[in-house]
């Protein structure tokens, strides 16, 4: 039992996160300082949680999709749409719960549309979701008519910038989703079914798994997660910026999942490790910002660090240092 916990703690993602945080600390000695201010925690570590939350939420949805050997490129555009819908509705005078529900419904509809293209029409996921990636941002711009729609609704602003027990609301929402989705896929057979479809969809269907339904579920969940992230991002800046909200975040989400050890070829996946991947990415981003490097170096530093993380996770490194994601216990 102790050995199992130890081997889990020694996974490469956690080591990478600790490594990045330590580098940040060397560059900026006050990195770990956390103070209490205006009824909330305040410090760089809290920023990592807060700023990492949208990508973490996207990754929670994305990991299921990737485990089925798919990919969802549309999440950034769905974020923009959800934010646009929520913002325009509260500005038009609808109560916040209606606006949030409508935004989530839009996310679900987008996800199911992707799922329909992939599961029923059998279009390759990268192509199927590319459609909405391009069209979705256009739709968001149509909804906002090209403006940044600003709002003063306290509920939406609370979702984006509020705090719960001192922690940023965005991080709390991400944690709740993480627990919920992890329980859903690990305490039921759902996770196993997803992996089965990812490894071999035909075989899974023959084994009696309703793979079409399952694909609709995972793409639907990805859409809903994107909508949640979109509402958070809009609430954070008190406005829906259709041009920029969620721009390129689909790539960060995919990267988070990959850093989390889930293969793009589908199969075995881990929701908590994908979230850890998102935190690693954000720890790098925040580290670059507090380090004082000139901005021209941002992308180079980020690329170098990601390269390092991927090397640590490579099959070669795992042969030298056996700390790969543990295979679930089988009756052996």
């Amino acid at each position: 039992m102790t050995r199992r916990i130890l081997s889990r703690l020694a996974n490469p993602q956690l080591l990478a996160l600790v490594g990045v945080l330590l580098i940040n600390w060397l560059l900026f000695p006050n990195f770990f300082r956390i103070t209490w201010q205006d009824g909330r925690l305040f410090g760089s570590l809290i920023d990592v949680l807060n700023r990492g939350a949208p990508v973490a939420i996207l990754a929670i949805g994305m990991v299921g999709v990737i485990a089925t050997k798919g990919v969802d490129l549309s999440v950034g555009a769905v974020m923009a749409m959800a934010g646009a819908v929520a913002a325009t509705l509260v500005v038009a005078g609808y109560p916040a719960p209606v606006a949030v529900a409508a935004a989530l419904a839009v996310g679900l509809a987008c996800g199911l549309w992707n799922g329909f293209l992939v599961a029923v029409l059998d279009i390759q996921p990268i192509v199927a979701t590319l459609v909405l990636m391009v069209a979705g941002r256009g739709i968001a711009q149509l909804i906002t008519e090209g403006f940044i729609v600003t709002f003063t609704d306290p509920v939406l602003i609370f979702i984006g910038t509020g705090s719960f027990l001192g922690f940023p609301m965005a991080a709390v929402i991400a944690l709740a989703l993480l627990v919920l989705v992890t329980l859903l896929v690990r305490k039921t057979a759902l996770g196993l079914f997803i992996e089965a479809v990812g490894v071999n969809r035909a075989a899974a269907s023959l084994a009696g798994i309703r793979s079409r339904m399952l694909l609709l579920y995972v793409y639907g969940l990805s859409g809903v997660c994107a909508a949640i992230a979109g509402i958070i991002v809009a609430g954070d800046i008190r406005g829906a910026d259709a041009n920029n909200a969620g721009l390129w975040l689909e790539l960060d989400a995919i990267l988070a999942v990959v850093i989390g050890g889930t293969s793009l070829l589908g199969g075995r996946f881990s929701v908590p490790l994908a979230v850890l991947g998102a935190l690693i990415i954000q720890a790098m981003n925040t580290g670059i910002l507090v380090s004082g490097f000139p901005p021209e170096f941002n992308l180079i530093v980020k690329a170098a660090l990601i390269f390092l993380v991927l090397i640590i996770q490579s099959p070669l490194a795992s042969r030298i240092m056996p700390t790969r994601m543990p295979v679930r216990e089988t009756s052996k």
Binding site: F28, N30, G43, S44, D47, R51, I148, V233, D236, I237, G239, D241, N244, A245, N285, T286, L289, V290, G292
Partner: peptide, 15 residues
């Protein structure tokens, strides 16, 4: 962008 402006300013304030 607004969101990046906010994120960068947060980091500046900490450092």
């Amino acid at each position: 962008t607004r969101s990046k402006g906010k994120e960068v300013m947060e980091a500046f304030l900490k450092s």
